[in-house]
Design a protein around this nucleic acid. Structure first.
Length: 631
DNA sequence: ACGTTGATTGTTCGG
DNA sequence: CCGAACAATCAACGT
């Protein structure tokens, strides 16, 4: 254990009592590095206590321990540290300072130390710490000093290599340091600059700004010349650091890093003058001597942090991919949803006075065209000035769609159309059939995804503006509709994954989703498309087209009673009502037969309005008021 | 390669 | 132009 070599033992008493006190006690009385019985809290090692006795460096045998200690004490004092008397006193004395850190008996400590760690820093003379050194960590001088053998080093060497309270920097005032020493740190930034990106170099060259004045004043060397003389191209060691999103979750640090974080503070507290290298070495030694149990403490923390990180990362990526877009697009009813205007183009007439709070999205005004499969929830408002229609879109990441919707629509856009577009007896399959074969009909699962996407994007609260667009629809209306019984058949549906064709008796799904072809290929929006469906449109039963149209009714969440759903329920009686009247609330016009809807609407405007109202009501109730529509 | 901390240096930006 | 704020770099070591 203890070698015969003149070692200097660093005795760290690291105790881990079973108590809950989270502190690292570094005890000792003499050495400034670890002097005084002080207690340091170590949040990471919850119930462990580090007690670190002082470090005693073995000086020349001729030197009394007290001398060395006194020297350390001097060094510990920033004022007295500059006392040059040290040079006279120890200047030429060689100090053999092998440092021995022996691994000790972790179990020796018994109760307090049984589960803990003790690390001793001591010198071989046997001191008061030999009484019960639970752990002795042997750190050969080669480790700390970087020498391959025990050597005799002078003060300057100590200063540069050990600095362990013997550092010349502490002894000599900075101004008194030799130019070489003074220069040693200086070239570091310069050399690093040499390794910087070519742009940096070019900028420096072009600006012809040699060197900062301060640096030049301190360093007689003409640094700029050095910089410019760099012949070979700087190795691209420094890869361009892409800007990290501040919102991106931080990667959990390693157990060692945690330990370092905790321990270095204590060490620094005891020896403020300790350099990073010294601290790092000590921490490493402590880590080495750390019992597996204590290491496990940190490792568990790391594991826990990793789990949290993964979760946070997943959420973050969802957010990123979401690129939540809630935008209002003004477009001609005849024009297509797939022709999103430029963000600055065609400013909305904005029927509402002013959006109270424009959607504060993390990303700049998003490009409308999603870069990856996305769901666009559209809510078509009624015709507005100049016969334009306001379309609110919510981009939903494809991942948030129910698995049943995870079709491989390469770059397709899923358009969720408010249910009102659908007729009381089914979905406008004519429109669906007009799709590209990737059309899917989904129900609330999609809306749930939409709502989840919207809420996960921290969208502002739903504001009145959207509702202001439909004054004819008092907000209390959904409440009355809620009294409608839920569709029975929906609850009697077969288990999930069962794709059942809609039938007449079954209320139509609240929403339908259409996966549109890529933007370039997109055709007119489903809700507004005036494309005339074939007059011979078959009945619902016959609409099972060979195209892969899925009617996923099993995804209906029976227990969810959303206004949207109920609205649809209430819609049926109206549609079936013998009294001919437009379904849209507030419209008393008689319904008009049309290929795009059944006889429950009087006009396409009412279809759109109804759509929008229903959808907005649903979204308002579903998204926990986390969704806001710009308009 | 990246994380630990803190000192140092350089750059950028606002007054 | 100056100072504040910020970013980059370095040290030793472990993961």
């Amino acid at each position: 254990m203890h070698t015969q070599l003149p070692y200097c033992y660093l005795f760290f008493f690291l105790q881990f009592p079973g108590g809950n006190e989270n502190y690292l006690a570094i005890s000792g009385t003499t050495h400034p590095f670890l002097s005084g019985a002080e207690t340091f809290h170590t949040p990471s090692l919850g119930d462990e206590e580090f007690e670190i006795p002082p470090i005693a460096l073995d000086a020349d045998p001729s030197l009394a321990v007290s001398d060395v200690v006194g020297h350390f004490e001097d060094l510990g004092d920033p004022v007295t540290a500059q006392d040059t008397s040290f040079s006279a006193q120890y200047g030429v004395q060689a100090l053999d300072i092998p440092v021995g850190i022996s691994h000790g008996l972790m179990e020796q400590g018994g109760g307090l130390l049984s589960s803990g760690l003790a690390m001793d820093l001591d010198h071989p003379m046997g001191t008061q710490y030999n009484a019960n050194p639970p752990v002795t960590i042997d750190v050969p001088m080669t480790d700390l000093m970087g020498h391959t053998q025990l050597t005799t080093i002078d003060q300057s060497e100590l200063s540069s290599q050990l600095g362990l309270s013997l550092g010349g920097g502490a002894i000599l005032p900075p101004a008194a340091q030799s130019p070489e020493e003074r220069l040693s740190p200086a070239p570091s930034p310069t050399s690093s600059m040499q390794e910087e990106e070519p742009e940096e170099i070019r900028r420096q060259v072009s600006t012809a700004k040699p060197v900062p004045v301060a640096s030049a004043a301190l360093t007689p060397v003409t640094v700029p010349t050095v910089v410019l003389d760099v012949g070979k191209k700087q190795k691209p060691t420094k890869k361009q650091k892409k800007k990290k999103d501040p919102n991106e979750p931080q990667k959990p640090v390693s157990a060692y890093a945690l330990f370092f974080r905790d321990t270095q503070a204590a060490i620094k507290g005891q020896n403020p003058s300790a350099t990073f290298g010294e601290v790092s070495k000590i921490v490493a030694s402590m880590w080495d001597s750390l019992g597996e149990e204590q290491k496990q403490v940190y490792k568990r923390k790391t594991e826990a942090a990793k789990k949290e990180y993964l979760q946070a990362l997943a959420a973050y990526r969802d957010n990123q991919e979401c690129q939540t877009i809630v935008e209002t697009v003004e477009l001609d009813p005849v024009s297509s949803l797939t022709q999103p205007p430029a963000p600055d183009a065609a400013p909305a007439p904005s029927p509402a006075p002013t959006p109270p709070t424009p959607p504060t999205l993390e990303s700049p005004p998003p490009a409308v065209i999603p870069t990856q499969p996305t769901v666009v929830v559209t809510s078509a408002t009624g015709p507005q000035a100049a016969g334009q229609t306001s379309i609110t879109k919510i981009i939903i990441p494809k991942q948030m769609l129910p698995p049943s919707l995870a079709v491989s629509s390469q770059g397709g856009v899923v358009t969720v159309i408010p249910a009102a577009v659908m007729t009381s007896r089914g979905i406008q399959l004519s429109q669906l059939q007009a799709g590209t074969g990737t059309t899917q009909i989904v129900t609330r699962s999609v809306l749930a995804a939409a709502a989840a996407a919207a809420s996960s994007m921290h969208l502002p609260r739903l504001h009145p503006p959207p509702l202001q667009q439909m004054p004819q629809q008092p907000p209390a209306q959904p409440v009355t509709i809620l009294q409608q019984p839920p569709p029975l058949q929906a609850m009697q549906q077969p288990p999930l994954q069962q794709k059942v064709r809609l039938n007449l008796q079954q209320p139509p799904p609240p929403l339908q989703i259409k996966i549109l072809p890529p933007p370039a290929l997109q055709i007119q929006p489903l809700a507004l498309r005036t494309e005339e469906s074939s007059p011979e449109r078959p009945g619902p039963e016959l609409r099972a087209s060979p195209e892969p149209v899925e009617m996923i009714t099993a995804d209906v969440v029976p227990e969810v009673e959303s206004p949207m759903h109920v609205e649809l329920v209430s819609e049926s009686p109206v549609a079936l009502s013998p009294r001919p009247r437009c379904v849209r609330a507030g419209c008393d016009n008689p319904p008009v037969a049309n290929s795009d809807w059944d006889n429950e609407y009087c006009s396409s405007e009412c279809v759109v309005k109804h759509c929008r109202d229903v959808f907005l009501a649903w979204l308002a109730s579903r998204s926990s008021n986390n969704v806001v529509f710009v308009k």
